[in-house]
Design a protein around this nucleic acid. Structure first.
Lengths: 266, 266
DNA sequence: GGTCGCGTTGACCGTCTGGTCAAAATTCAC
DNA sequence: GTGAATTTTGACCAGACGGTCAACGCGACC
């Protein structure tokens, strides 16, 4: 299976230069910009409608996936006609791009806040708590990203290999530092981060299953409390340094080996 | 957002009883069975082609999601024409159903093997190991189920509320028994199971992200070794009973409570 | 070697869907 | 108020997609 973007014969862009009498040459020939972006200045209406569209797209994409969502659905939910929607975003793909980009930053905020200065255990506990709150309060975002990545992240590889990777590596180094200092058990920080993502986002991404198995109604949040308790126990006890932990006094315990997470590993 | 199955205006089944001269009354009027199922006996060819179709569907559904997959794609991958495919499964939806049902059992096998008789820590470690191996060796299945559940599990609610729930509750009771016996830290067993699912399946479902962040090429499995080490540490240390754990001396604190099926459970 | 049920297919159909276009409606600065 | 710029829309389009149908193999058994 190829994976890749949406891979498929490709809808073959309708012969853009359709033979229909092209009265006046289009301003920018084949401009890939939506008409709205070609105005003198960014208007209030533009900002508002773009916001409405992205909000609607979040709803629809997160519920049905990119391919499963239709422009009509998004347009309706945004309270406008499809051609109008396409006045602001020339292609469905552009909506996806804009949506992902606009949400990614906020999504990574909790990890960004993980501070080398704080107490390791407290920092990790806070990170878990915040991630879990995000699953509870913003499940659509979680599912949106999950869906994207599951399809091979066609529209996100750049973000992942760029900002995300940089951030994750930075924080992995922080965690490694804590381990060297004997503040936490020496574990592979990358896999620790994955585990925190997986366990917390699980409650948003697989919400329907969680609720079915726990007998929680769709309008209750009760189980998040238990989840928080469990996860805090698991990670804090799982990461607590051994009682006899020795702060690794390596000769010039300088900058740790570059990532890979494999210290004495592999 | 409604969620539900694929929710949407519904493709309005093409007027089945199209006015085209209906020469002879159809055998079963409006039979919902594929033609292949109406033969006297199940032939070798039937078994073979159904297998091919389900194999192809697993590839395609897991890569593009149900809505994203097309019958043409599945047919091509199964090495047959679309009408031929529809000779074996009358509707796309039927393929989904058959596929999910045929895979669910094997998917739950590792949990089924979690035995009340074994040593708790060893049992849990084995479960994690097997789940991780499944992510590595059968990522398509993982993504297939993940995609289904993320969309609200339209075609799986029965399975989830039925077999899965029964199994999970049975095993939760086993874990509860271990906790009562002081063999593991007293934790919410449901959330423990979720955490194991989440952390292990993460490596299949979010494979593309994991590889990008870890710099692992698509044809390498190396990182699964580190993942296994990390997860084993996390869960075993996280669940290890406190040193001063007292085995909850119930009346006749004999051999660990039978467990097996749900004891005091619904 | 005929025949009868199983298996396969090319040609189609109706609908959906992403996207276009020309023109009408609205807004806004002056 | 008015004219230019911006916004909105109804009517369309072409390709994709799920599904149907009549008819044509085909092979196994007599």
């Amino acid at each position: 299976m190829t994976r890749e973007t949406d891979a498929r014969p490709a809808p073959a862009p309708p012969p853009r230069a359709r033979a229909r009498a092209r009265k006046k040459a289009p301003p920018a020939a084949d401009a890939p910009t939506p008409r709205a972006a070609r105005t003198r200045r960014r208007t209030r209406i533009q900002r508002e409608n773009e916001r409405k569209i992205l909000a609607a797209a979040l709803d629809v994409f997160s519920a049905y996936g990119f391919r499963g969502a239709t422009l009509d659905q998004i347009a309706e939910r945004a309270g406008m006609s499809k051609p109008n929607l396409l006045y602001y975003f020339r292609r469905k793909e552009d909506i996806r791009e804009a949506l992902l980009t606009s949400l990614l930053d906020a999504w990574l905020e909790p990890l960004r806040d993980l501070s080398a200065e704080g107490d390791p255990m407290r920092e990790i506990a806070a990170y878990i708590r915040r991630k879990l709150e995000m699953s509870r309060d913003r499940p659509r975002e979680s599912r949106l990203f999950a869906g994207e990545i599951m399809q091979g992240a066609p529209a996100m590889t750049a973000h992942i290999k760029g900002e995300l990777k940089a951030l994750v590596e930075e924080k992995a180094e922080v965690i490694r530092g804590w381990a060297r200092a004997g503040k936490i058990r020496p574990v592979d920080p990358m896999h620790l981060i994955f585990a925190i993502w997986a366990t917390t986002q699980h409650y948003a991404d697989f919400d329907s299953q969680v609720r079915a198995l726990l007998d929680v109604s769709p309008d209750s949040d009760g189980h998040y409390h238990d989840a928080a308790r469990f996860l805090e126990t698991l990670f804090l006890k799982g990461l607590a340094p051994e009682p006899d932990a020795k702060p690794h006094a390596g000769p010039g315990a300088g900058p740790a080996p570059r990532t890979g997470g494999a210290e004495g590993e592999a």
